[in-house]
Design a binder for these strands. Structure first.
Lengths: 111, 111
DNA sequence: GCAACCTGTAAGCCTTGACTTACGGAATGT
DNA sequence: ACATTCCGTAAGTCAAGGCTTACAGGTTGC
């Protein structure tokens, strides 16, 4: 059920901006707030939500806490999307067959 | 930028319930509203949001409209998640070799 | 111990959006 | 034509949550 909190966490644009900023690598909270148009406490609150959703991890480093991307939440999201993916492809293929008869035999492999 | 609307569309739980109901296959709007605890117009509004996010498609079938999963939004979400995936694994691997504090600034290039 | 720094938390405001009821509109059946 | 069915849209209500300012907790250095 981690995918639910992960989806809710990535929905707001500014919180997503905080998360996307971690693509460049781990950063302390103050540095994360620099480029954004919101206050530093707002970024802290967003980081708590992201942490609860297992999307970021915090590491105490002296008097500053460094945040980095946590693969756990991403993996939960990917697994959730996969549950729709094969169904969507199946229905899509079925739609193609109804419009015009065509043959295709592509099978999707799971990692 | 379709991933943004897709994430915002899948954040609310009841709208996600509507979307998950389509895993069983295409359904008209009235059937989608049956199992849920919200009114039928609410489901209609959710379907419009999902349609705008390219997560569902509607097909007029007489006086009823049948909804099915659209792979377009799912593909946009998967591509968005992939942009974090390699970074997360990179940092995770770096954390594992925490035997000595390395301060290497790695630059990633994008095609 | 004291001060400066980096940060999370509290309380409150205020906008966003999810939901309901009521209505309009197109397709099918008699 | 008329009624019925199936559905989207409008208007309005109300709670959820994003944001700010102010405050509290630790850590480093003098």
């Amino acid at each position: 059920m981690t995918y639910a909190s992960a989806l809710e966490a990535l929905a707001p644009s500014t919180r997503r901006a905080v998360f996307e900023r971690l693509r460049k690598g781990p950063l302390p909270a103050s540095r994360l707030a620099e480029g954004l148009s919101v206050s530093r406490p707002a970024v802290s609150q967003h980081l708590q939500v992201l942490k609860r959703a297992r999307l970021v991890r915090e590491e105490a480093r002296g008097r500053q806490r460094i945040y980095s991307i946590d693969p756990t939440g991403l993996e939960a999201l990917r697994a959730y999307l996969d549950t729709f993916w094969d169904v969507a492809l199946d229905r899509f293929k079925q739609t193609l067959e109804t419009s015009r008869p065509k043959r295709s035999k592509s099978k999707r492999s799971k990692p």
